[in-house]
């Protein structure tokens, strides 16, 4: 089951065709402060995008606009050819194809790990309980914590919780996965167990947008790295070019700050 879920977008480097995500001239304001300035971005099927930038640069807001946890005020957000609009039911349908993983995990503390994973399949997809549980178990195995299924989230370590969150998102069989700083709230020794899961997911061909400062992950997995500052995309390039030969002074400064510890 799980291999089906993960393997359907097998060729990231085939002909590009139609983009699965399209941001066209998207702008957003918090009050009178402009957080996003005319963002244009196309993401193709199977692509892995890493977004980085200083804090407050708008990167989290941008990916939160992609599944409309934040609403933008200008421009368009198009997913699989359908634009988010004012029709709430339609927006919910579009959102089903997008899985999201949060910095703070946001697991439901009153439900067991298994129940966290089966909640959406049962209530949103109307899946029989046994089938949902089988699906959840297979995905928990994939993130290597099937033995924790009966525990409650707060009984797990941060890394385990984040892996449950990934499994929970995968249970909805999404075509796109958004990661909002998935390792920022983790202790250093737990970062790799989460990154390993994400790398494996990437290798299976999932379309992914990852906001992260893990540059080794970007180098290894990303098709494109996007650098944002002050609400706009400063530079986007394949990882090799981005890290070895950044073109903008701002990018160089940022890289020198995060790579020289």
């Amino acid at each position: 089951m799980s291999t089906n879920v993960l393997a359907q977008n097998a060729s990231p480097s085939g002909d590009r065709g139609r983009p699965v995500i399209e941001l066209v001239g998207m702008s957003k304001w918090f009050g009178s402060f402009q957080v996003l300035k005319d963002i244009d971005l196309r993401v193709y099927e199977g692509e892995r995008i890493v977004v980085c930038g200083p804090s407050g640069s708008g990167k989290s807001t941008m990916i939160r606009c992609i599944n409309q946890l934040e609403t933008h005020q200008e421009g368009e957000v198009i997913v699989n050819g359908e634009a988010f609009g004012s029709n709430v039911a339609n927006n919910d349908l579009i959102r089903r194809d997008i899985g999201m993983v949060f910095q703070q995990f946001n697991l439901f503390p009153h439900l067991t790990v298994l129940e966290n994973c089966t909640l959406a399949p049962i209530w949103v997809k109307e899946m029989p309980k046994a089938q949902a549980e089988a699906l959840a178990m297979s995905l928990l195995e994939r993130v290597r914590i099937p033995e924790q299924a009966a525990k409650y989230p707060l009984q797990l370590s941060g890394g385990q919780q984040q892996r449950v969150a990934i499994a929970r998102a995968l249970c909805m069989n999404p075509k796109i996965m958004l990661f909002d700083e998935p390792t920022s709230a983790l202790d250093p020794e737990m970062i790799n167990e989460v990154l390993d899961v994400m790398i494996e997911l990437a290798e299976s061909g999932m379309t992914m947008i990852v906001v992260t400062h893990e540059m080794n992950f970007a180098r290894r997995v990303a098709d494109r790295v996007i650098f944002m500052d002050q609400g706009e995309i400063v530079e986007e390039a394949p990882p090799a070019a981005f890290f070895d030969n950044p073109r903008f002074d701002r990018t160089q400064l940022f890289l020198s700050q995060i790579l020289h510890h």
Partner: peptide, 29 residues
């Protein structure tokens, strides 16, 4: 926390069910 609502929304759970399945069980405690 607002994160609970967001997580439910990202999973596509309807607002009325989010209230019943996620918010109320935690709020009642």
């Amino acid at each position: 926390s607002h994160g609970q609502t967001e997580a439910a929304r990202a999973l596509g759970v309807k607002p009325s069910w989010t209230m019943r399945l996620i918010i109320l069980p935690q709020a009642l405690r």
